[in-house]
Amino acid sequence: MKVLLIGFGDVGRAVARILLSRNIEVTAVDISETRMDGVNFIKTDALSEELYEFVDLDEYSAAIIALPNDVDALLCIMMIKKKKEDLLVFARCNNPSYREKMSIAGADYVVDISTITSQMILSTIFREEAEKRLLYENIHVRTYTVSENSPLVGRRVEDFDDVLILGIEKDGAVRHDGVIEPGSKIAVVGEIEVLKAFEERFMT
């Protein structure tokens, strides 16, 4: 899979790191040259007609517009869709008033930064309320690091009936099933007495 990334500022670089971690080939376009290992880079104006004459959009599975200016992003969407109408386009939107305009211009998905930010804040607030409720009901969430010689190594998430293992994290990758490996972190949910028994059996 190959992705064309328009805009290589803070957001663009963050997107590129995620794509690379999933073995997706990335070509970045920006007027300022900022190199990153593994990313093909084109230094040019994203609104230049010459760019879309030079770049063969048929080579790409999708385009991601990560420009900081909504007007520039809108124009970029229109230029890409004019060149290749069926290319999947994701666009960053800073001002919610441009969300509909970008969709009309042809963006398949528009990520509204301000709305997402507010949702994250609300999620944090309500998560605290949820945690209080869980504590009231004697339900706790604890995280553990799995050592090399832990009895957990080699066991599967679905092997446990008394506790719920929410997920496994290792080297920045998170999954919710499969085999537990040494060096990973696990998030476990259960009543406090059950968690204590779990710790005594597997974590000591």
Rank of each mutant, 00 (worst) to 15 (best):
R155L: 03
R155N: 01
R156N: 15
R156D: 14
R156H: 14
V157L: 04
D159R: 13
D159F: 09
D159Q: 08
F160E: 00
F160C: 02
D161E: 13
D161T: 09
D161P: 04
D162Y: 10
V163S: 07
V163A: 04
L164C: 09
L164W: 08
L164A: 10
I165M: 07
L166G: 05
L166Y: 03
G167W: 00
G167K: 02
I168V: 14
I168P: 09
I168W: 01
I168M: 05
E169K: 08
E169L: 10
E169S: 15
K170M: 00
K170S: 00
K170L: 01
K170A: 02
D171Q: 04
D171A: 10
D171M: 06
G172V: 11
G172W: 12
A173N: 14
A173P: 03
A173E: 14
A173H: 06
A173M: 09
A173G: 01
V174T: 12
V174W: 00
V174I: 07
V174L: 10
V174M: 08
R175Q: 03
R175E: 05
H176M: 15
H176Y: 15
D177A: 09
D177Y: 10
D177T: 11
G178R: 10
V179I: 15
V179N: 11
I180R: 12
I180C: 08
I180S: 14
E181N: 10
E181T: 10
E181D: 11
P182Q: 05
P182G: 03
P182R: 05
S184A: 13
S184E: 07
K185H: 11
K185L: 08
I186S: 00
I186W: 01
I186R: 00
I186H: 00
I186K: 02
A187F: 06
A187N: 14
A187H: 01
A187Y: 02
A187K: 10
A187W: 04
A187R: 05
A187T: 06
V188G: 02
V189E: 11
V189F: 10
V189M: 15
V189D: 13
V189T: 11
G190H: 02
G190T: 03
E191P: 04
E191I: 06
E191N: 11
E191C: 12
I192P: 00
I192R: 11
I192N: 11
I192C: 13
E193F: 01
E193D: 05
E193A: 07
V194I: 15
V194A: 07
V194L: 14
V194Y: 09
V194Q: 07
V194E: 12
L195F: 04
L195S: 01
K196L: 01
K196F: 00
K196N: 08
K196D: 12
K196C: 01
K196P: 03
K196Q: 11
A197L: 13
A197P: 00
A197S: 15
F198Q: 04
E199A: 02
E199N: 02
E199S: 00
E200A: 12
E200V: 03
E200F: 07
E200Y: 06
E200D: 13
E200I: 06
E200H: 04
